[in-house]
Design a binder for these strands. Sequence first.
DNA 1: ACCTAAGCGAGACGGTACGTCTGGTCTTTCT
DNA 2: AGAAAGACCAGACGTACCGTCTCGCTTAGGT
Lengths: 231, 231, 231, 231
Amino acid sequence: MQSRTPVPRASGRPRSAAADAAILAATREALVELGWSKLTLGDVATRAAVAKTTIYRRWPGKNELVVDAVAELFDELRLPDRGTLAADIEGVVLQFAAILARPEAKSGLMAVVAESTRDDALRERIRASIVDRQKRLVLEGRARAQTRGELPPESDPEEASRTVDLIFDVVAGAVVHRTLVSAEPADEEWVRGFTRVLLLGLAGASDTPNSAEPAGSRAAGAARVGAGGTP
Amino acid sequence: MQSRTPVPRASGRPRSAAADAAILAATREALVELGWSKLTLGDVATRAAVAKTTIYRRWPGKNELVVDAVAELFDELRLPDRGTLAADIEGVVLQFAAILARPEAKSGLMAVVAESTRDDALRERIRASIVDRQKRLVLEGRARAQTRGELPPESDPEEASRTVDLIFDVVAGAVVHRTLVSAEPADEEWVRGFTRVLLLGLAGASDTPNSAEPAGSRAAGAARVGAGGTP
Amino acid sequence: MQSRTPVPRASGRPRSAAADAAILAATREALVELGWSKLTLGDVATRAAVAKTTIYRRWPGKNELVVDAVAELFDELRLPDRGTLAADIEGVVLQFAAILARPEAKSGLMAVVAESTRDDALRERIRASIVDRQKRLVLEGRARAQTRGELPPESDPEEASRTVDLIFDVVAGAVVHRTLVSAEPADEEWVRGFTRVLLLGLAGASDTPNSAEPAGSRAAGAARVGAGGTP
Amino acid sequence: MQSRTPVPRASGRPRSAAADAAILAATREALVELGWSKLTLGDVATRAAVAKTTIYRRWPGKNELVVDAVAELFDELRLPDRGTLAADIEGVVLQFAAILARPEAKSGLMAVVAESTRDDALRERIRASIVDRQKRLVLEGRARAQTRGELPPESDPEEASRTVDLIFDVVAGAVVHRTLVSAEPADEEWVRGFTRVLLLGLAGASDTPNSAEPAGSRAAGAARVGAGGTP
DNA sequence: ACCTAAGCGAGACGGTACGTCTGGTCTTTCT
DNA sequence: AGAAAGACCAGACGTACCGTCTCGCTTAGGT
């Protein structure tokens, strides 16, 4: 085994770590005040008391900078231990909703996602910095539920992966849509209702596998959609 | 009694209807080729063989123009009659996914949503032009299911409205998230699985109303999340 | 014999004479307020309560309109009869200076002269509308002085024409330069001094013809230039 | 003790001196080809292979740029030493006429003078860059003539200053008017005639001071105006 | 204690797009 | 057919940022 030098050399003056932090903080500040489209790197540089070149030395452009600035917001996401799977999910969804309610996330996140539709490197950066950080929580949550005995260990890894992806798209998508498009708060009441539907749907789906679904049962199962009220 | 012209006068040369159509088509073309952030109104004007002022006379800016250009894509959304509620939903979700898969929608939609977080007028325009057009389908679908007898008539209008909103956020959010963030196709298989979870969840939720949720049953109900396979 | 209509027909609605006057007045008003470079035909149309097309039907462009609007100012130039040639000249120069002191003339005149350096038709229009109107006064003045006996009848028409041109360039040029470039008023005192130099120069020049100028006498003649005071 | 640099610091990249020269040259080139009113800063920028902002960083607008571009033309004005005052004046007037005959001067000079009627800062710039440069020659010429003994030293400085101003307005005005308005060349013959009138007029004026002018002598002095011919 | 290589601030640079304004023209309807 | 109204194309305006490039300094590590 040999020691490798990951950085080829450390010649010359090292980069200022303070500058990095100041730039990211200034970026979030500018996002709050100006939003993504009016944010300029020149303005960020001024706010961070830094030269424009210092920013360009670290990030290729505005998109990447914003991704990193927003990603730091998701560092605080933690999987709480509230005793049950449902309560854990509610907790983490509420945290996610709280972050998304912040203007710097609202303004920045969807904008870079929109940009990423035409820039694979950017999408990869978003995936690595933001999405995977969230998806990890879903996996942690499942593992904890399995430890508790609420969930059996997965038998088919591929099917399990598909389910995790589905959960993730549904959870993140619904919260984002409610927050940004419907412009309604994803508050505790909404999260509770949403989590209930999600868990019941997943439980039902695992009971009646995809291949054997009788159309009648589906109709019956959905018999009271939108009816609400007491049974 | 006679009907009067609602427009008080038609003085001067009337606006060209052909220009409107050409501008919107050129906008979509530019969205496909350039994406939202590189789209310029000057370029759109050139493509539409129109002067820049002709665009600015009709739309306040890029955002509003893109909203209208993208909104036309959703004109083709129709609620199919496939016989059952589940099949109807699958059909309409697939249509929605197909539209969202088109590059002009991908590039434009999320960008204007991002902008709308800082511009209430823009959000209202999106709601009126795009969102309500989709939400109408959910209401139509529910009415048809009630006609068929798959769903009972709603008793509590407020609760029903909340449910429609939830459905809408979950459906639209999940499709958008899968398409744009996960960058996976929302194909027939995925839509089938998603619809099943959604309907089962809604059915279960209406069986066990919010106020009477036993934590134990929730955990049990979700007993096989991610486990897949047959019972 | 019958009266003939020189214009082949007067078919359709005749042009409004009031519009012409309103347009020229509005042009002068706009010249005062905005100056030549900020004057727009759209603005003139608005001030004259007239459509832009009505202006373009009568004038080819801004330059020609301004020439006509400014030319009207020179209509009021009259050769006064003050008894002597010198007094007559002082009077007409003062009138010329008074017109040139008005902002609509200041702003407009030099601008169209500048334009005319690249537009022969425009220069011809200026000559016909403005310059000849002034030059006529010089000829009138000479004729009157000849009637009075102050000047002999010209013997050499060509030489006389050259002299008139020289007088005209010197008078108009000096007044314009003092007013516009030096930005000093061409008031009575200045006009008196200028006229004296001019007349003495011309008188001396006709005494000592061009071909026989002794350098010595010239130097002697100019012996006190700039010295002022009494001998 | 040592002299220190008066400029406190030279932070940032210094301005390119080559750009300045290229812009002024391109401006003159564009003036020749297009004239003042069709000259655009974008076009100048293209000709100078320079960005528009580089022009705006140095000059507030088109007028100021043209003033500086035209002013450089007058750098070549020199007071020649031809032995006598009259010959010196003829020489410098001919130089002035030659510069004014160039299309870049014709087009530009009167246009900025016209603009300056509404812009005091611009007039001041013209005075400093162009007019004073010319007026200096008049002063030099007088000093040289005094050295030669052609002129006595001035006794009344105020009167002398007035005379210089008058000379300047007459000379510059007459040349400009002949060149631009009359559109005739201010060639050697014309300059000789003009100079003779000017010097004789000035000499006569200093002989018969303003306060003591008998009207009769004025009329007599001008007895042959326009008559020409030999005595 | 020097040397050297990179980082850093400042700000000029060539570009591109902005949103507005004006110039002329064209198309309506009304007179 | 002229006039008022105003939409239309074309293109310049002056500004704002972009991302790059000099500048002159600073700052560490290696010698």
